[in-house]
Design a protein around this nucleic acid. Structure first.
Lengths: 124, 124
DNA sequence: CAGCATCCCGGCCGATACTG
DNA sequence: CAGTATCGGCCGGGATGCTG
Protein backbone atom coordinates (compact mmCIF):
# COMPACT_ATOMS: atom_id res chain seq x y z
CA UNK A 1 0.00 0.00 0.00
CA UNK A 2 1.62 3.30 0.96
CA UNK A 3 5.33 2.51 0.64
CA UNK A 4 6.27 5.23 3.12
CA UNK A 5 4.37 3.59 5.93
CA UNK A 6 6.48 1.56 8.37
CA UNK A 7 3.93 -1.24 8.34
CA UNK A 8 3.40 -3.41 5.26
CA UNK A 9 0.72 -6.05 5.44
CA UNK A 10 2.33 -7.94 2.57
CA UNK A 11 5.34 -8.72 4.74
CA UNK A 12 4.98 -12.00 6.55
CA UNK A 13 6.26 -10.61 9.84
CA UNK A 14 4.23 -7.39 9.93
CA UNK A 15 2.03 -7.14 13.04
CA UNK A 16 -0.76 -5.70 10.92
CA UNK A 17 -1.27 -9.22 9.59
CA UNK A 18 -2.48 -10.38 12.98
CA UNK A 19 -4.98 -7.59 13.43
CA UNK A 20 -6.18 -7.97 9.85
CA UNK A 21 -6.90 -11.61 10.59
CA UNK A 22 -8.77 -10.77 13.77
CA UNK A 23 -10.88 -8.21 11.96
CA UNK A 24 -11.49 -10.30 8.87
CA UNK A 25 -11.55 -13.68 10.53
CA UNK A 26 -14.57 -15.91 10.39
CA UNK A 27 -16.36 -14.10 13.24
CA UNK A 28 -14.34 -10.90 13.58
CA UNK A 29 -15.97 -8.94 10.80
CA UNK A 30 -19.50 -9.84 11.84
CA UNK A 31 -18.79 -9.05 15.47
CA UNK A 32 -17.36 -5.63 14.75
CA UNK A 33 -20.19 -4.72 12.42
CA UNK A 34 -22.81 -5.97 14.87
CA UNK A 35 -21.50 -3.42 17.35
CA UNK A 36 -21.63 -0.58 14.85
CA UNK A 37 -25.11 0.56 15.66
CA UNK A 38 -25.12 0.14 19.41
CA UNK A 39 -23.57 -1.34 22.49
CA UNK A 40 -24.58 -4.95 23.03
CA UNK A 41 -24.38 -7.48 25.82
CA UNK A 42 -22.75 -10.85 25.37
CA UNK A 43 -25.85 -12.85 24.61
CA UNK A 44 -27.39 -10.12 22.50
CA UNK A 45 -24.28 -10.25 20.38
CA UNK A 46 -24.48 -14.00 20.27
CA UNK A 47 -28.00 -13.86 18.89
CA UNK A 48 -27.14 -11.16 16.38
CA UNK A 49 -24.16 -13.05 14.95
CA UNK A 50 -26.14 -16.07 13.87
CA UNK A 51 -24.20 -19.30 14.20
CA UNK A 52 -21.35 -18.22 16.44
CA UNK A 53 -20.62 -20.43 19.43
CA UNK A 54 -20.11 -19.06 22.89
CA UNK A 55 -16.47 -20.05 22.83
CA UNK A 56 -15.71 -18.42 19.51
CA UNK A 57 -17.52 -15.22 20.41
CA UNK A 58 -15.57 -15.03 23.62
CA UNK A 59 -12.25 -15.59 21.84
CA UNK A 60 -13.12 -13.08 19.14
CA UNK A 61 -14.06 -10.41 21.66
CA UNK A 62 -10.84 -10.90 23.59
CA UNK A 63 -8.75 -10.52 20.47
CA UNK A 64 -10.63 -7.39 19.42
CA UNK A 65 -10.38 -5.94 22.90
CA UNK A 66 -6.65 -6.57 22.95
CA UNK A 67 -6.28 -4.79 19.60
CA UNK A 68 -8.09 -1.78 21.05
CA UNK A 69 -11.12 -2.06 18.76
CA UNK A 70 -13.68 -3.12 21.35
CA UNK A 71 -14.27 -1.77 24.83
CA UNK A 72 -15.54 -4.16 27.49
CA UNK A 73 -17.40 -2.84 30.49
CA UNK A 74 -18.53 -5.16 33.27
CA UNK A 75 -21.18 -4.03 35.73
CA UNK A 76 -20.74 -5.57 39.18
CA UNK A 77 -24.43 -6.40 39.44
CA UNK A 78 -26.23 -9.64 39.99
CA UNK A 79 -26.94 -11.14 37.56
CA UNK A 80 -23.77 -9.88 35.87
CA UNK A 81 -24.07 -7.51 32.95
CA UNK A 82 -21.25 -6.89 30.49
CA UNK A 83 -21.49 -4.36 27.70
CA UNK A 84 -19.40 -4.40 24.58
CA UNK A 85 -18.91 -1.29 22.48
CA UNK A 86 -16.61 -0.12 19.73
CA UNK A 87 -13.77 2.26 20.51
CA UNK A 88 -13.27 5.21 18.14
CA UNK A 89 -10.73 3.11 16.24
CA UNK A 90 -13.21 0.25 16.16
CA UNK A 91 -15.81 2.57 14.68
CA UNK A 92 -13.44 3.48 11.88
CA UNK A 93 -12.75 -0.17 11.17
CA UNK A 94 -16.48 -0.90 11.26
CA UNK A 95 -17.10 1.79 8.66
CA UNK A 96 -14.76 0.09 6.25
CA UNK A 97 -16.15 -3.36 6.97
CA UNK A 98 -19.71 -2.19 6.47
CA UNK A 99 -18.74 -0.77 3.12
CA UNK A 100 -17.30 -4.12 2.12
CA UNK A 101 -20.21 -6.18 3.40
CA UNK A 102 -22.78 -3.81 1.95
CA UNK A 103 -21.10 -4.09 -1.43
CA UNK A 104 -21.16 -7.87 -1.31
CA UNK A 105 -24.80 -7.95 -0.29
CA UNK A 106 -25.77 -5.55 -3.06
CA UNK A 107 -23.94 -7.49 -5.71
CA UNK A 108 -24.77 -11.01 -4.60
CA UNK A 109 -26.91 -11.61 -7.72
CA UNK A 110 -23.83 -10.95 -9.84
CA UNK A 111 -21.74 -13.24 -7.65
CA UNK A 112 -24.27 -16.04 -7.69
CA UNK A 113 -24.49 -15.82 -11.47
CA UNK A 114 -20.70 -16.06 -11.73
CA UNK A 115 -20.72 -19.13 -9.49
CA UNK A 116 -23.35 -20.88 -11.56
CA UNK A 117 -21.50 -20.14 -14.74
CA UNK A 118 -18.24 -21.42 -13.26
CA UNK A 119 -19.83 -24.62 -12.03
CA UNK A 120 -21.62 -25.22 -15.31
CA UNK A 121 -18.41 -24.86 -17.32
CA UNK A 122 -16.09 -26.80 -15.06
CA UNK A 123 -17.34 -28.82 -12.15
CA UNK A 124 -20.50 -30.18 -13.81
CA UNK B 1 -27.18 -3.78 7.15
CA UNK B 2 -29.83 -2.51 4.68
CA UNK B 3 -32.91 -4.38 5.87
CA UNK B 4 -34.55 -4.15 2.45
CA UNK B 5 -31.82 -6.17 0.80
CA UNK B 6 -32.65 -9.83 0.17
CA UNK B 7 -29.22 -10.87 1.43
CA UNK B 8 -28.27 -10.55 5.09
CA UNK B 9 -24.77 -11.54 6.07
CA UNK B 10 -25.87 -11.98 9.68
CA UNK B 11 -28.04 -14.91 8.70
CA UNK B 12 -26.22 -18.19 8.96
CA UNK B 13 -27.53 -19.49 5.64
CA UNK B 14 -26.90 -16.39 3.54
CA UNK B 15 -24.61 -17.07 0.57
CA UNK B 16 -22.89 -13.75 1.18
CA UNK B 17 -21.21 -15.39 4.17
CA UNK B 18 -19.22 -17.65 1.86
CA UNK B 19 -17.98 -14.86 -0.37
CA UNK B 20 -17.18 -12.70 2.65
CA UNK B 21 -15.00 -15.50 3.96
CA UNK B 22 -13.22 -15.92 0.64
CA UNK B 23 -12.54 -12.21 0.48
CA UNK B 24 -11.54 -11.78 4.10
CA UNK B 25 -9.95 -15.16 4.60
CA UNK B 26 -6.34 -15.56 5.55
CA UNK B 27 -5.09 -15.17 1.97
CA UNK B 28 -8.13 -13.78 0.16
CA UNK B 29 -7.73 -10.17 1.19
CA UNK B 30 -4.03 -10.03 0.39
CA UNK B 31 -4.54 -11.73 -2.96
CA UNK B 32 -7.28 -9.35 -4.07
CA UNK B 33 -5.34 -6.29 -2.99
CA UNK B 34 -2.15 -7.54 -4.64
CA UNK B 35 -4.03 -7.54 -7.94
CA UNK B 36 -5.33 -4.03 -7.45
CA UNK B 37 -2.51 -2.27 -9.20
CA UNK B 38 -1.84 -4.62 -12.05
CA UNK B 39 -2.31 -8.03 -13.58
CA UNK B 40 0.07 -10.60 -12.17
CA UNK B 41 1.22 -14.10 -13.06
CA UNK B 42 1.00 -16.99 -10.63
CA UNK B 43 4.52 -16.85 -9.29
CA UNK B 44 4.59 -13.06 -9.23
CA UNK B 45 1.53 -13.20 -7.03
CA UNK B 46 3.18 -15.84 -4.90
CA UNK B 47 6.17 -13.62 -4.27
CA UNK B 48 4.01 -10.57 -3.59
CA UNK B 49 1.86 -12.34 -1.01
CA UNK B 50 4.69 -13.20 1.31
CA UNK B 51 4.23 -16.53 3.06
CA UNK B 52 1.46 -18.07 0.96
CA UNK B 53 2.01 -21.63 -0.19
CA UNK B 54 1.46 -22.73 -3.77
CA UNK B 55 -1.49 -24.81 -2.72
CA UNK B 56 -3.23 -22.07 -0.76
CA UNK B 57 -2.71 -19.50 -3.49
CA UNK B 58 -4.18 -21.88 -6.02
CA UNK B 59 -7.21 -22.61 -3.84
CA UNK B 60 -7.71 -18.93 -3.07
CA UNK B 61 -7.58 -17.97 -6.73
CA UNK B 62 -10.08 -20.65 -7.66
CA UNK B 63 -12.54 -19.47 -5.03
CA UNK B 64 -12.17 -15.83 -6.11
CA UNK B 65 -12.53 -16.77 -9.75
CA UNK B 66 -15.69 -18.71 -8.98
CA UNK B 67 -17.12 -15.71 -7.16
CA UNK B 68 -16.46 -13.58 -10.23
CA UNK B 69 -13.88 -11.35 -8.56
CA UNK B 70 -10.82 -12.55 -10.45
CA UNK B 71 -10.37 -13.24 -14.14
CA UNK B 72 -7.96 -15.99 -15.18
CA UNK B 73 -6.42 -15.92 -18.63
CA UNK B 74 -4.12 -18.71 -19.78
CA UNK B 75 -1.85 -18.21 -22.79
CA UNK B 76 -1.22 -21.42 -24.74
CA UNK B 77 2.51 -20.77 -24.97
CA UNK B 78 5.47 -22.75 -23.84
CA UNK B 79 6.42 -22.24 -21.09
CA UNK B 80 2.85 -21.60 -19.99
CA UNK B 81 1.82 -18.14 -18.92
CA UNK B 82 -1.29 -17.42 -16.88
CA UNK B 83 -2.41 -13.93 -16.00
CA UNK B 84 -4.69 -13.06 -13.12
CA UNK B 85 -6.60 -9.79 -13.03
CA UNK B 86 -9.50 -8.30 -11.11
CA UNK B 87 -12.92 -8.09 -12.71
CA UNK B 88 -14.83 -4.81 -12.32
CA UNK B 89 -16.56 -6.30 -9.29
CA UNK B 90 -13.19 -7.40 -7.96
CA UNK B 91 -11.91 -3.85 -8.33
CA UNK B 92 -14.78 -2.56 -6.23
CA UNK B 93 -14.05 -5.14 -3.56
CA UNK B 94 -10.36 -4.27 -3.67
CA UNK B 95 -11.17 -0.61 -3.11
CA UNK B 96 -12.94 -1.47 0.12
CA UNK B 97 -10.23 -3.86 1.24
CA UNK B 98 -7.49 -1.34 0.58
CA UNK B 99 -9.35 1.17 2.69
CA UNK B 100 -9.48 -1.30 5.53
CA UNK B 101 -5.87 -2.41 5.26
CA UNK B 102 -4.64 1.15 4.84
CA UNK B 103 -6.48 2.15 7.98
CA UNK B 104 -4.93 -0.68 9.98
CA UNK B 105 -1.44 0.11 8.71
CA UNK B 106 -1.85 3.79 9.57
CA UNK B 107 -3.11 3.11 13.05
CA UNK B 108 -0.82 0.24 13.96
CA UNK B 109 0.97 2.33 16.60
CA UNK B 110 -2.34 2.80 18.37
CA UNK B 111 -3.10 -0.92 18.08
CA UNK B 112 0.31 -1.97 19.34
CA UNK B 113 -0.06 0.36 22.32
CA UNK B 114 -3.45 -1.16 23.13
CA UNK B 115 -1.96 -4.64 22.96
CA UNK B 116 0.87 -3.77 25.31
CA UNK B 117 -1.51 -2.18 27.77
CA UNK B 118 -3.80 -5.21 27.65
CA UNK B 119 -0.93 -7.63 28.18
CA UNK B 120 0.52 -5.58 31.01
CA UNK B 121 -2.80 -5.46 32.87
CA UNK B 122 -3.89 -9.02 32.34
CA UNK B 123 -1.57 -11.67 30.91
CA UNK B 124 1.99 -11.03 32.12
C1' DC C 1 -26.28 -13.91 32.64
C1' DA C 2 -21.34 -14.18 31.45
C1' DG C 3 -17.95 -17.00 30.79
C1' DC C 4 -13.86 -20.60 31.46
C1' DA C 5 -12.34 -25.68 31.15
C1' DT C 6 -12.27 -29.87 28.75
C1' DC C 7 -12.78 -33.09 25.11
C1' DC C 8 -12.53 -34.22 20.46
C1' DC C 9 -13.32 -34.31 15.50
C1' DG C 10 -12.91 -32.38 10.71
C1' DG C 11 -10.49 -29.88 7.73
C1' DC C 12 -7.10 -26.15 7.04
C1' DC C 13 -2.84 -25.75 5.54
C1' DG C 14 2.22 -26.70 4.91
C1' DA C 15 5.59 -29.96 2.79
C1' DT C 16 6.77 -32.88 -0.68
C1' DA C 17 6.56 -35.12 -5.02
C1' DC C 18 4.99 -35.26 -9.62
C1' DT C 19 2.87 -33.61 -14.46
C1' DG C 20 2.29 -30.89 -18.82
C1' DC D 1 6.21 -21.86 -15.37
C1' DA D 2 1.80 -23.32 -13.59
C1' DG D 3 -0.14 -26.04 -11.48
C1' DT D 4 -2.34 -31.08 -9.29
C1' DA D 5 -1.96 -35.17 -5.83
C1' DT D 6 -1.21 -36.92 -1.56
C1' DC D 7 0.06 -37.26 3.21
C1' DG D 8 -0.04 -35.73 7.87
C1' DG D 9 0.05 -32.46 11.90
C1' DC D 10 -2.20 -29.32 14.28
C1' DC D 11 -5.59 -26.27 15.57
C1' DG D 12 -10.14 -24.06 14.69
C1' DG D 13 -14.13 -24.52 16.58
C1' DG D 14 -18.47 -27.14 18.17
C1' DA D 15 -20.52 -29.66 22.29
C1' DT D 16 -20.83 -30.23 26.95
C1' DG D 17 -20.36 -29.27 31.74
C1' DC D 18 -19.28 -26.12 35.60
C1' DT D 19 -18.52 -21.49 38.22
C1' DG D 20 -19.68 -16.88 40.13
Amino acid sequence: MDPDLPFDVFARSCPSRGTLEHVTGRWGALTVVALYECTLRFNELRRRVDGVSEKMLSQTLHALERDGLVHREAQPTNPPRVDYALTPLGQDVADRLMGLIGLLEERMPEILAAQEKYDAERGA
